[in-house]
Amino acid sequence: MAAEVDKVFKALADASRRKLLDMLHTTNGQTLGQLAERLDMTRQAVTKHLAVLEEANLVATVWRGREKLHYLNPVPINEIYERWIGKFERQRLRALHDLKKALEGNEDE
């Protein structure tokens, strides 16, 4: 269990990998080629990052014919969320998050 959590945090501790997750959040089920063409990175670098994300179970893959499709798997993130955020704090955090969004005028943050 501890090792699983370590992998998730290590995988998330990299801006390029977070960017990949953002891209899958916007459009789920993309191929390596689709992801690589929109990033300023070599295909090999993208492949490595995807492997780390898959190892941490943040990305799930499905083969469709000869294409390997990548899906955002938020289940491990939900486990981390549930670990530290109690049932009754959720409402207040949501309100704070909405306030921050409104003040900063940024939909994505």
Partner: peptide
Amino acid sequence: MNKPKFVYVTYI
């Protein structure tokens, strides 16, 4: 085969 919309994986 249709393209799946969401894929969730958990190890138990």
